[in-house]
Design a protein around this nucleic acid. Structure first.
Lengths: 200, 200
DNA sequence: TTTCATACTGTGTATTTATACAGTATAAAT
DNA sequence: ATTTATACTGTATAAATACACAGTATGAAA
């Protein structure tokens, strides 16, 4: 898939926002207004470029006839994470789900498919999708996605300072994980906002 | 809230479908075409009626400027169920959540807020929202919403025939519930399609 | 070096669209 | 009995909108 220029990406984002906020795609004029273009034709040309690259579909002769290509919509589901690769790398994305609405308390950057039973006692079970918001500022009590030496894990954060991190599995059969960030490679990937489970 | 005529209701449904399928609201002409009106003004008048009754908001001077009033959109969340009242009765609906996308395997009629810990061992905990599809034809193994003598409960269906129903809590501390439908009042309200949990 | 993509302004216009006004007809409400 | 809401057709038009064509300028690719 062809990559977008900065401007094209901004415009695609704007279209997506307008659809989400106003319930309908913008007109050329509205795009021009937003970006300060003095001619609606600038918008027209960006739309054509986005269409040509396959990111949107333009319906000719129709007001607001812009639709965003579905394969770029929706929130990615991250399955097995290849060691060392960024969570959202293409090879880790299982699929995407269309998902809008204010269900979770913050914006969902991706869903992570849960493996194992280490969080069973708080109702997070194998196969569940957990909604993740990318952020570093997490506090004890939060359920977090962390990366320890290239290994991605979901646990409750119990303690966090420069010299010591304690991650707590929510299952009696597992022990707390204690990390020294100055020795081991450690990173917070995000905060768990909620759970989505689909039977069958 | 004022009630809608059959025609107005059909038109409201159509608008909602167009938004969902095409990603933008219809024009007056498109509404007229769909219903076989020979004049776009028929659509205009229905829109005005829907606006007046508060079901939609019309944005003047804007193409496709129709937005559906949020309070009629979305899927209802059913909280505490008043004894004897239908699950979806107004007094039982906590709020509604905007929710579209093909997350669950079937269409979600409502979300039910979970009370108690009787399903803890399959990861359904207090406060969770479970997605329910209204149906009677459930089979053993399904997690179902059932009504026993005006009491609404969520359990795994273990056995079901004319003389005996067994509902199984997924928690060692609870015992199976055995019902004789010819003596006790019993009804299947729906099937649990999945779980939605929102932290914080 | 020349082409091509990007990123704009500026002008023009056919078409789409919203929306008013004038009618007709029926059923429900006052 | 008369008004009001519903449910349409038919005509008209101002405004909104898409979109083509003609330019200018820049940087990257062939």
């Amino acid at each position: 898939m062809k990559s977008l220029t900065k401007r094209q990406s901004e415009i695609l984002t704007f279209i997506s926002e307008v659809i989400s906020n106003e319930g309908m795609p913008p007109t050329r004029k509205e795009i021009a207004l937003k970006f300060g273009f003095k001619s609606a034709n600038s918008a027209e040309e960006h739309l054509k470029a986005l269409d040509k690259k396959g990111y949107i579909d333009l319906q000719g002769g129709t007001s607001r006839g812009i639709s965003i290509n579905k394969s770029f919509l929706g929130i990615p589901i991250v399955g097995s994470v290849a060691a060392g690769s960024p969570l959202l790398a293409v090879e880790n994305v299982e699929e995407r789900i269309e998902f809008n609405g204010n269900i979770f308390s913050d914006s969902v950057d991706y869903f992570l498919r849960v493996k194992g039973d280490s969080m069973n006692e708080v109702g997070i079970v194998e196969g569940d999708l957990i909604a993740i918001n990318k952020r570093k500022d997490v506090k004890p009590g939060d359920i977090v996605v962390a990366r320890i030496n290239d290994d991605v894990t979901v646990k409750t954060l119990f303690h966090l300072d420069k010299r010591k991190v304690i991650l707590r599995p929510e299952n009696k059969n597992y022990k707390d994980i204690e990390i020294n960030p100055s020795i081991e490679s450690f990173d917070i990937e995000g905060k768990c906002l909620g759970v989505l489970r689909n039977y069958n």
